[in-house]
C-alpha cells in the first residue's frame, strides 16, 4: 500500500479533467520527529501524466507541496476508456506508476 495513486479522469465536452491523489509523505526536511531528530527530506520531484502514451502534463514538485499531493488539470480530447498514465520519481529515486481509464 506504500505507493498508491487514486485517479479520476472524466471526459465531457471534448476535454478530459484529471484529478489525482498520490500517497507520499512529502517530507520537507524542516520538520523534527518526536525524538527531536530532523526527518530527512523525501518528496516527489517529477510527476508525469500521459494520455494514450502522449505526455499531457509534467509537474516539478518541491518540498512545499502538501503531504499526499492532489492535482487537478484538464486537456483537450480524450474519450471514455482511453488510458491515462501517471508516474512519478522522488528525490530518493523511488518511483511509482499506474494507469487508469477515462470514465
Amino acid at each position: 500500500m506504500a505507493h498508491q495513486i487514486l485517479v479520476h479522469a472524466m471526459s465531457s465536452g471534448g476535454s478530459t479533467t484529471v484529478e489525482a491523489l498520490i500517497k507520499h509523505p512529502m517530507d520537507s526536511g524542516f520538520v523534527k520527529d518526536k525524538a527531536g531528530k530532523i526527518i530527512p527530506a523525501h518528496y516527489i520531484e517529477v510527476i508525469e501524466f500521459t494520455h494514450k502514451g502522449k505526455i499531457v502534463l509534467t509537474g516539478y514538485w518541491g518540498p512545499a507541496v502538501s503531504k499526499n499531493p492532489f492535482i487537478k488539470f484538464s486537456f483537450k480530447g480524450g474519450k471514455s476508456g482511453d488510458p491515462i498514465g501517471i508516474s512519478w520519481v522522488d528525490n530518493k529515486g523511488e518511483t511509482a506508476a499506474t494507469s487508469s481509464n477515462i470514465m
Binding site: 476535454s15 499531457v56 507541496v65 502538501s66 499531493p69 488539470f73 484538464s74 486537456f75 483537450k76
Partner: peptide
C-alpha cells in the same frame, strides 16, 4: 492541448 489551469495543494 492542456489547459493552463491547474489546482494543487501546497504548504505555507
Amino acid at each position: 492541448g492542456t489547459s493552463p489551469a491547474i489546482a494543487s495543494r501546497i504548504k505555507l
